[in-house]
Computed example of a mutant assay.
Amino acid sequence: MGVRAGIVVCITSFLLGSLFTHWIADSLTLWKSPVTDEHLWTAATYYSILAKGPPAALYFLAAVVATGGITILWSLRDGEAGNIMFDGGSIFLFGTTIAMYLYSVLPSVFATFNSLPAHQLKDPFPRSLRFATLELASNNLICSVALTGVLALQAGRSWAERSDADDEEFEESEAEGTRSRAKTPDPRTEKLHQRIESTD
């Protein structure tokens, strides 16, 4: 695996790990049945804490995302068929994740969960917050699947490059063997020449 592919894999893995931390909240709304008011309040409180977090965390995350996107685009510039196929798919999935976060996830977190009403866990959950909480969990799941696809495509690219390198080595060894056989004289041909020369 090259340096650029290694950077993409590391950054994608970091972003996946960041999304997996939301499992604390999302597991209560996606995988619990029935979804109770207590589950929804817990998830909403978690996202409220994130919305009030330090802006430096967002700047750091933006820098990591930008580095990953630039690295994939850099690989795509090579113009090789494998890069176009694997990195093109990676850019699509990576871009889909970024677009979903910029236009859906982050606006929802800051607009909806920045200030929650005073409540107890057993209080009825507001209907206006219910849809936003469930949608947020679904969007996080979609982003996780998309980033997993980026990892799969980069693994496929690495396998394809290794297979191409093995094929090239095999072809080079075959060509080298052919050249060495051509340079080595055949003993039977030499004997035939010697008989012809002795006859003359």
Score class of each variant (00 low, 15 high):
109 V>P: 03
7 I>F: 05
58 L>P: 00
16 L>K: 13
91 I>Y: 08
90 S>P: 00
190 E>K: 05
59 Y>G: 15
137 A>Y: 07
159 W>K: 10
55 P>I: 08
174 E>H: 10
164 D>Q: 12
56 A>K: 12
70 I>T: 03
69 G>E: 04
146 A>V: 02
75 S>C: 05
174 E>F: 12
172 E>R: 01
24 I>L: 13
112 T>I: 01
183 K>E: 13
153 L>E: 01
192 L>M: 15
13 S>H: 05
50 L>G: 02
94 F>C: 07
80 E>R: 13
155 A>K: 07
37 D>M: 02
2 G>H: 05
5 A>I: 00
29 T>V: 14
117 P>M: 04
77 R>C: 03
122 K>A: 11
93 L>C: 12
191 K>Q: 12
170 F>V: 13
109 V>S: 08
200 D>M: 14
118 A>M: 08
56 A>L: 06
100 M>N: 15
150 V>H: 09
4 R>Y: 07
120 Q>P: 06
126 P>E: 04
146 A>G: 04
147 L>F: 11
121 L>I: 02
16 L>E: 11
191 K>T: 06
86 F>W: 01
30 L>F: 05
46 Y>T: 03
20 F>E: 14
66 A>G: 04
47 Y>M: 02
144 S>I: 03
130 R>T: 03
10 C>M: 13
58 L>M: 08
132 A>G: 00
67 T>K: 02
151 L>P: 00
72 I>L: 09
4 R>D: 09
51 A>T: 07
124 P>C: 09
200 D>I: 15
42 T>Q: 07
133 T>E: 08
45 T>V: 14
78 D>L: 06
104 S>Q: 14
75 S>E: 05
132 A>L: 10
62 A>N: 13
80 E>V: 02
75 S>I: 04
59 Y>I: 12
156 G>T: 04
4 R>N: 10
73 L>M: 08
2 G>W: 03
78 D>F: 04
171 E>T: 10
92 F>A: 12
140 N>A: 08
117 P>V: 03
183 K>M: 12
99 A>M: 15
